[in-house]
């Protein structure tokens, strides 16, 4: 076969054209013929206009708004993520930190996409600049965008003014994970904590977010996402109040 006349053709399309030739009965008869025969075929395929490749910029953002992901497929993927990470760390803290980092990458995208879907149609799109409304929108909108349901509760710490908690009674991502007894400290919801941290960071509320198991008798999977805000956030809230 001659080299493709247009090197810009993607590997996929030329190889697909070749294989279809080989499969078609007409092409198979010429396969053992004179070497000039394939070159005729090449020019025939090259003269066909190549379909422009679809890029991410061609896909509408709202089309998949209500699309759902198979829970089984996600559970499998997430279990692989946890196993992959676990092989590369030295302890539970390290594992949680890495899961947090992975979640952070998701959270940055969730924030931009969610805001675009909610605000792009508005006349004057707005951002959240106060902390409590931002926390509420994480509790309902981010949770709904990521897990399909709002979180179960928001609590404010009594002892520390800079600590807030988002509580999920049965987080979908850890539903199929049972943590071994010797690792009982581990909460795979650190991934969720990473998402929350990215959203807060993006909105301009830097915080340290961690996940903790807080099981009750009725709800063995209950998980608390603990948000510890940086001091600058509290100062800013104080300044905006007046």
């Amino acid at each position: 076969m001659h080299a493709a006349p247009h090197p810009r053709f993607s590997v996929l399309s030329t190889s697909a054209a070749q294989s279809s030739e080989h499969l078609s009965p007409a092409a198979s008869s010429t396969r053992f013929s004179l070497p000039s025969a394939p070159s005729i075929n090449t020019t025939a395929t090259a003269s066909k206009p190549a379909a422009p490749r679809q890029t991410i910029y061609d896909r509408p953002l709202n089309k998949t708004r209500t699309a759902e992901v198979s829970a089984a497929a996600f559970a499998f993927l997430f279990s692989e993520v946890v196993q992959y990470t676990q092989k590369r760390v030295s302890g539970i803290n390290d594992l949680e930190r890495r899961l947090n980092t992975l979640g952070y990458r998701v959270g940055m995208r969730v924030l931009e996409l969610m805001a675009h879907r909610n605000e792009a149609a508005a006349k004057a799109p707005r951002r959240e600049i106060r902390f409590l409304p931002a926390l509420m929108s994480i509790h309902t909108q981010v949770w709904r965008a990521v897990f399909g349901k709002p979180a179960d509760a928001i609590e404010k710490s009594v002892e520390n003014a800079d600590e807030y908690m988002i509580i999920d009674n049965d987080p979908p991502i850890t539903r199929n994970i049972s943590v071994p007894r010797d690792m009982s400290q581990l909460s795979c919801s650190s991934f969720t904590a990473g998402i929350v941290e990215a959203v807060l960071d993006g909105l301009g509320f830097p915080a340290r977010v961690t996940a903790h198991n807080t099981p009750t008798d009725q709800l063995p999977n209950r998980t608390t996402i603990l948000i510890k805000l940086e001091k600058s956030v509290l100062d800013r809230e104080e300044a905006l109040k007046t």
Partner: peptide, 29 residues
């Protein structure tokens, strides 16, 4: 402005000679 105002599109925030500066801030800053 971003600290106080919650609009994303900030029109004519700054001027310098013949140039006018407009800005747009996404939620991710």
């Amino acid at each position: 402005i971003v600290r106080k105002d919650n609009l994303m599109y900030l029109k004519s925030v700054d001027k310098f000679n013949e140039w006018t500066v407009s800005a747009f801030v996404t939620p991710g800053n």
